[in-house]
Simulated scan of single mutants.
Amino acid sequence: MQNLMDQGARRFGAVNWMGLYTLAQRETLRFMAVWTQTLLAPLATAGLFLLIFNIAIGPSRSDVMGVSFLTFLAPGIMMMTVIQNAFANTSSSIIIAKVQGNIVDTLMPPLSALEILLGYLAGGVTRGVLIAFVVATALAIVLGIVPQNPLIALIFVILGGAFMGALGLFAGIYANKFDQMAAITNFIVTPLAFLSGTFYSVEALPPALNYLSHVNPVFYLIDGLRYGMIGVSDSSPWLGMVVCSGATLLVGTGAWQMLRTGYRLKA
């Protein structure tokens, strides 16, 4: 009886650090077990994007914001890779567990909704940070791009992983089938990543599109990382931190509410 009372206190009161660590470790080991797909494949994708744009557009494109087009493009590709993989990490973990029917293995242990949320986010953020490190190392070796403001770059990578990890958790809970998840990825996540200044400066857009870009949190993620990597940006990185932190808190709160109520998780 005392053991059950202790578990209850850890479940609803104090943080269950052991359970939180175990869930975070599971989510990290899950993608590390296939590191060639989860770490090397994104590096290859980022390299292909840079190569294709350099061949197709680079020679005829003038400098952007005082730097070469390839240098301007690199941080955008880097952040796009980070957020797509952070989203994939949490969303795939939830949807696979739901489809296979083993989501109960996560819901039954003495873990609060916040602890479950943080455990999943730890996996998504870790994957995003590792991918950022791999891509940044390649950029330094191949293009000679060294972060101008490493701390700011790291902060935006963590914010990007947290925001898209929370969005992935939200989407994974909402979707009941893989085709629903594919629709969310194709019609929400991909446009957010591509239409946010990844390949261009938003200052070159018409006023209406420029305004819409500034409503998109992913724009601030890409713009903030660009400032951290090469020292130029379309907006203030401090404003970007505020917007991205607020967006992460908002989406994370929605995912927490879903976990707390068991929305689409409990039969």
Rank of each mutant, 00 (worst) to 15 (best):
M5S: 14
D6K: 13
D6I: 13
Q7L: 15
G8Y: 14
F12A: 09
F12I: 08
V15A: 12
G19Q: 04
L20Y: 04
L23Q: 00
E27P: 03
T28K: 05
M32V: 02
Q37K: 02
L39P: 01
L40T: 10
L40I: 14
G47L: 11
L51V: 09
I57H: 01
G66V: 00
L73V: 03
T81G: 12
T81W: 02
V82K: 02
Q84S: 14
Q84W: 11
F87I: 06
A88K: 02
N89S: 13
S93Q: 07
N102E: 10
V104N: 13
M108T: 15
P109N: 09
P110G: 04
E115F: 03
L118T: 06
L121I: 02
L130G: 09
A138H: 09
A138N: 07
I141K: 02
V142D: 10
Q148H: 11
N149F: 15
N149G: 00
I158T: 06
A162Y: 02
G165V: 01
A166M: 00
L167Q: 02
G168L: 02
F170L: 14
K177P: 12
M181W: 13
A182W: 07
A183P: 09
T190Y: 10
L195D: 05
T198Y: 11
S201Y: 01
L205N: 01
P207A: 13
L209D: 04
S213A: 15
V215K: 10
F219Q: 08
L221C: 07
I222T: 04
I222Y: 06
D223H: 01
S235W: 02
S236M: 08
L239P: 00
L239K: 01
V243A: 06
V243I: 10
G252N: 06
A255N: 06
L259G: 05
L265C: 04
